[in-house]
């Protein structure tokens, strides 16, 4: 197999692995955060505004880890720099 095939195979596998592993830990983290926030709101309904605002900010922080993985996977699949380098080098 030539190098472009290898680059294609490895890029797709790396994108899938990146997304699969990178989605697990933010999912666990968000689940814990929401669980804590819900029980806090159930205990103190008066503070629901402050809790949910902080929850949103925290969720955005946690979620951005998954978003980094998503961006890297999408770059690997749709705008792969190594792939285009090889294609440009072979004059395709």
């Amino acid at each position: 197999m030539d190098s472009s095939t290898w680059i294609g195979i490895i890029s797709i596998c790396a994108a899938a692995l990146c997304m699969a592993i990178g989605a697990i830990s933010p999912a666990l983290g968000e689940a814990r955060a929401i669980q804590q926030a819900l029980s806090s709101i159930a205990q103190q309904p008066d503070e629901a505004g402050a809790i949910s605002r902080t929850l949103f900010i925290g969720l955005a922080m946690i979620e951005s880890i998954a978003i980094y993985c998503l961006v890297i996977s999408i770059i690997l699949i749709f705008a792969n720099p190594f792939w285009s380098h090889v294609i440009a080098k072979s004059g395709g």
Partner: peptide, 16 residues
């Protein structure tokens, strides 16, 4: 960087 990539990733992934 996180601020930029978060917004970009969310909106871009939506349309994608």
């Amino acid at each position: 960087i996180a601020l930029a990539v978060r917004l970009f990733g969310n909106i871009m992934s939506g349309s994608m």
